[in-house]
Amino acid sequence: MNCSELKCCEDSKDEFARCVFTHDVDGGCQFESVSENSPGPVENNEVLLRFVFKPHHFDDDELNETLFSDCFKCGASCNRGLFLDVDHLHKLGYDCQNEKRKYIGFVRLNVGFMRDSCDNGIRVYDTALPYNKCHADVVSLPSLPKTQRKKVRMTLLNHVRTNGGVFSPDCPL
């Protein structure tokens, strides 16, 4: 397929994951660059960094599976660690917080691990943006049975707990 067609999925918002799996059946577009803003396709040896935002009224400090709920809908937004230093990442994180959510840091995800997990049910795409060329998305198939979706969420949660994360300077968990 022409992987540039995946650009149209970016308008799908909550249906982004479904759109990607519909257009890129075999996942081949993970290894192509689909944006003129991009530094290139996301390689298996890269590390993605996912921001963690805590709702202001949360009474719980423990990360949980919901950090990866977006995989099945709009895609779990990440930044490609290869191209960003920690200070820059924190600045991006602070810029994304709002009155509802406070930025508390980021967690690490190995691209190769994700692509090899859950019977290749987790994919990583270069989704560079005009204002953030390091943007990437982690997606999984929304039509998976609920047990398999749970396995995807738990696999990713285990992975970030193993890899650890970096707290923002003024907001340790």
Partner: peptide, 15 residues
């Protein structure tokens, strides 16, 4: 009860 009154989680979109 709290989550029913103030639905929230770690995803980017409101649950």
């Amino acid at each position: 009860d709290n989550l029913r009154q103030n639905p929230a989680n770690y995803s980017d979109n409101d649950p």
